[in-house]
Write a protein that binds this DNA or RNA. Structure first.
Length: 557
RNA sequence: GCGCCCGUAGCUCAGUGGAUUAGAGUAUCUGGCUUCGAACCAGAGGGUCGGAGGUUCGAGUCCUCCCGGGCGUACCA
């Protein structure tokens, strides 16, 4: 149970007992919100419930606050309760309780910070899902970082999480890709085959074609184009996906499943779902194409499911089957898709579709991450696959490093239109907040190492010696982690993690500055032992936070 | 035109679903290393929260309008 939940219960009990004793009048159902005051002098937690009750109780809020504060029952967590103008009840945590938490954190170890709001419900997080037509470029990194961290957070919050990459291996883009690959392959074999129009640009395809020629031989050269492509396609897809998988791995991203769009077509699921829609009278034929009749569901316009030119499904068409598969076949309680903001027009259609399939649209959540504006030394960079100006994720990682990259993307909320200055990220490395956070971890590790070298054991420490302001400040910050995880999971906002990490590292550095852990003085052994336990707890909390962010927790730097 | 998103310190960004005196990093300036790691700590300056109305006892947060920017508005994905 979270501290805030415990406090809410206490407030609820206080309210009831004050009403029972007649010091407060009756009130309707109330939602007790526990907040964190901005100023330390107002305590650790507060509630503005009296302000909300003032109207229905027809009493001055300050009087209500006074009555509630006086009625809070005795308990282990709260040290003192006060009321303050204009109508707050402020709580200060009990010192003894905080001290006891050091042990709780150490015992929880790498599980510290976990909560159980998910209650084992299954949730799928689908992210990146870039067309397998070449290397990932920097614009894809943001969604990768957000999606993977979000998955970590949800797992820590008690959900059964599945991480998925949707491989679009069946659409028009792939056709263009393979057409271009064919030309490049033939060119590599010395034949003058022009590029198709449109064609995929970039050196990647030339390199891939040359590799295929080298590794598979020139057997496809003498074949007709469709047969040649059939020969080359599987291997090119495999290699491209391997490359993508490798780069994402370097970025700290991994998946439980790579789901292929083509499977939806070969398995018959696409046709099946199309029939379902047809039965619901939501498919119309017009201009030789088949449309999803979204206007019948109140949307602005219909959307094509099957093209008129070749009878193939559109991206949205297979996406219908894909989401049907997610909810009906795989039975996910919730599905979260992380999309680039340029796909936002797709959301209303998807939601309408779920409704048409008889599914609650709220089970699908789309997280849009805004396009990243990359700069170099203050100058804006425009990327495009078409005009071949791009920086790959691989290059980004070489320049900036995975941890720094993750921290930077993660510390902005997805909807912010963030700027990423590549030059700055490189040159500012030592001022980068990521190093501040990791340095804190390395420093705690160093203290524990030194303690081990000096053969200091501290299992039997007396935690009641931890009374210094900096020690208590650190404990307060450490035990905040479960609340942070809960909030990040509830709101699907992993960006709270790096901000918490900064605060924790700061509390830790301030503690280090004012509280000597290892002393050469004989009489200091008792306090050293207690502080070593605190250091260990702090390291546990910071390490877990870094892990949730998909970052490393260095023992040395 | 319409739709979605954004506008908070010089710069990059938070702000816990309305609440006690708007925060952090960075940059600038000042001070601090003889014992555990100075990639650190302490302090200072820097804000009409894009603008104007409105709701409210109370608005950076909710509503309306305006200004500025990004992205959509495909039988591409």
């Amino acid at each position: 149970m979270q501290i805030t939940d415990s406090l809410a219960t206490l407030v609820s009990q206080a309210l009831e007992s004050a009403q029972a004793s007649g010091s407060l009048p009756a009130a309707g159902d109330v939602d007790i919100k526990i907040e964190r005051p901005k100023l330390a002098q107002h305590g650790d937690f507060s509630t503005s419930l009296p302000l909300a009750l003032a109207r229905s109780m027809r009493m001055a809020p300050i009087k209500i606050a006074e009555a509630i504060a006086a009625a809070v029952p005795e308990n282990a967590i709260v040290g003192s309760v006060n009321h303050a103008a204009p109508g707050f009840v402020n709580f200060t945590l009990s010192t003894a309780w905080m001290q006891s938490q050091v042990d709780v954190v150490r015992e929880a170890g790498e599980n510290f910070g976990s909560v159980d709001i998910g209650a084992g419900k299954s949730v799928q997080v689908e992210f990146v899902s870039v067309n397998p037509t070449g290397p990932l470029h920097v614009g894809h990194a943001r969604g990768a970082v957000i999606g993977s961290s979000l998955a970590n957070v949800l797992a820590a919050a008690g959900y059964e999480v599945q991480r998925e990459y949707y491989v679009n291996d069946a659409g028009n883009q792939m056709r263009v890709f393979y057409d271009t690959l064919y030309s490049r392959y033939m060119q590599a074999a010395g034949h003058d085959v022009p590029l198709p129009d449109p064609a995929y640009p970039g050196e990647y395809l030339q390199d891939l074609a040359a590799d295929l020629l080298k590794d598979l031989g020139d057997g496809a050269v003498s074949k007709e184009k469709p047969e040649a492509i059939a020969d080359l396609a599987p291997e090119s897809l495999k290699r491209t996906l391997e490359h993508i998988r490798g780069v994402l791995g370097k970025l700290g991203v991994s998946y439980d499943q790579w789901f292929h769009e083509s499977d939806l077509l070969t398995s018959g699921r696409f046709d099946e779902v199309l029939n379902l829609l047809d039965d619901a009278d939501l498919v119309v034929e017009r201009d030789g194409a088949k449309w999803f009749a979204a206007t019948k569901l109140g949307l602005e316009e219909d959307t094509v499911i099957i093209r008129s030119d070749d009878g193939g499904p559109t991206y949205f068409g297979t996406d219908i089957a894909y989401h049907h598969e997610k909810f009906i076949e795989r039975k996910f309680d919730r599905v979260i898709n992380v999309w680039g903001a340029d796909h936002h027009g797709h959301i209303a259609r998807m939601k309408a579709l779920l409704q048409a399939l008889g599914l609650d649209p709220d089970r699908l959540t789309i997280i849009l991450n805004q396009i990243v504006n990359f700069k170099n030394e203050g100058e804006s960079l425009k990327f495009s696959k078409r005009n071949n100006v791009m920086v790959t994720v691989e290059e980004l990682l070489e320049e900036v490093g995975a941890d720094s990259c993750r921290f930077t993307f993660l510390s902005r909320s997805p909807e912010s239109h963030m700027e990423f200055d590549l030059g700055l990220a490189k040159t500012q490395s030592s001022e980068n907040p990521v190093y501040y956070v990791q340095y804190g971890h390395a420093r705690m590790a160093s203290i524990l190492r030194t303690a081990a070298e000096r053969k200091i054991t501290y299992e039997s420490a007396d935690l009641s010696l931890l009374t210094h302001d900096r020690e208590l400040e650190l404990i307060r910050k450490i035990i905040e982690l479960p609340t942070v995880v809960e909030r990040a999971a509830e709101r699907l906002e992993p960006h709270h993690l790096p901000h918490y990490a900064m605060e924790l590292a700061r509390s830790l550095q301030r503690f280090y500055e004012d509280c000597r852990v290892l002393s050469s003085e004989e009489g200091d052994l008792e306090i050293s032992m207690a502080r070593l336990q605190l250091v260990e707890a702090a390291k546990v909390a910071l390490s877990r936070t870094l892990k949730l962010m998909g970052m490393s927790s260095p023992e040395r730097m």
